[in-house]
């Protein structure tokens, strides 16, 4: 049976799926990236390998997405490397063909994707600042001495959410400390934080965009029921969180690899190969580009980061031989 592998590797977590021709998920996993995408992908591959019947399932397409898509793409010899906006939209559309709006809040990114008749018509992403993303929530949870996984449940118990200024993480933090010292209840502060994430998101990322339902909410923060509820209060309609919401990017890029013309033959053996990355400073000019070289078993397989052809190490090496 032919199958397709999709890997979505983000700043915080790494997601992978194996699907069949009908987009059914044969195997999936969700693990922490822990700042080491190479190791995370190896762990992911071992887990996926154990879940599928290797004699029967033959992986002929590989897609990668997420912020380390390029690195992982060369490691896996991917047939498709695609940005996460497109991947998320394709994945979500395969399960919810009539979706109009996707809210996505991840570890460092937040984005909104608008869809009309099954095609992406507009999107927006947070600009420089990571206020109101998962990283913000987990740092605040730590400050309050609450596990971030319990955040949502606690928020739901609040009767009167406190107002927290969330435009900037630094100010939110001092506002939060101040409110706590004033004697506001912990659950009210937590609910206030959830509300502020939502209003921050709608004002910054979603500003000026017309939001139509059905709305799907995904990304790590969608697991927080407090934020989901805050979204519903704010937009005045139901917000859907799929149990596989975290896999949408991986699913989307697996589907893209299914639709692509180039095919491969993948057997998970890369999990046993040795991969290494190395930063090299190019001294070709005063830009001093930092070039990333990826090697497999001590052989360079890819490089990037160069602004001009002087630093195009991989092609230089190829022409050398």
């Amino acid at each position: 049976m032919n199958a397709y592998l999709g890997v979505d590797i983000g700043s915080i977590s790494t997601k992978g799926v194996v699907i069949d021709e009908e987009n059914n998920i044969l195997a999936s996993d969700y693990i922490w990236t822990k700042g080491n995408p190479i190791d995370a992908v190896k762990r992911l591959m071992n887990s996926l390998k154990d879940q599928v019947d290797n004699d029967r399932v033959k992986i002929i397409g590989i897609g990668t997405t997420g912020s380390a898509r390029k690195l992982i793409g060369s490691m896996l010899n991917a047939t498709v490397v695609k940005n996460e906006i497109t991947a998320h939209a394709i994945g979500t559309l395969s399960l919810y063909p009539d979706v109009r709006t996707i809210f996505e809040i991840g570890g460092q990114d937040s984005k909104i994707i608008l869809i009309e008749d099954g095609i992406v018509t507009d999107y927006a992403m947070n600009t420089l600042c990571a206020a109101g993303t998962g990283a913000f929530l987990s740092s605040q949870a730590e400050r309050l001495g609450v596990a971030v996984e319990d955040f949502g449940k606690i928020a739901l118990t609040s009767q009167k959410p406190t107002k927290i200024a969330a435009r900037c993480t630094v100010f939110a933090e001092s506002d939060l400390v101040h409110k706590a010292q004033m004697g506001y209840k912990k659950e009210d502060i937590i609910a206030g934080l959830c509300n502020s994430v939502v209003s921050n998101y709608l004002n910054n990322v979603g500003k000026g965009k017309k939001i139509y339902s059905p709305i799907i909410f995904q990304g790590g923060v969608s697991k927080n029921v407090g934020v989901k509820k805050a979204f519903e209060n704010e937009v005045g309609t139901e917000v859907i969180v799929d149990k596989n919401g975290h896999l949408m990017g991986a699913l989307g890029v697996a589907i893209l690899s299914k639709n692509a013309t180039n095919k491969t033959n993948f057997d998970f053996s890369m999990a046993d190969e040795e991969f290494e990355t190395k930063g090299v400073e190019c001294n070709g000019c005063s830009n001093h580009c930092e070039i990333i070289c990826v090697s497999k078993n001590h052989q360079m397989i890819d490089s990037w980061g160069n602004r001009c052809s002087k630093g195009d190490l991989i092609n230089k090496k190829k022409s050398h031989y």
């Binding site: 912020s67 695609k82 940005n83 996460e84 906006i85 497109t86 992406v120 018509t121 999107y123 992403m125």
Partner: peptide, 11 residues
Amino acid sequence: LITRIESFIDI
């Protein structure tokens, strides 16, 4: 930056 530009072109 590249993620944003690429998805923009896709759209």
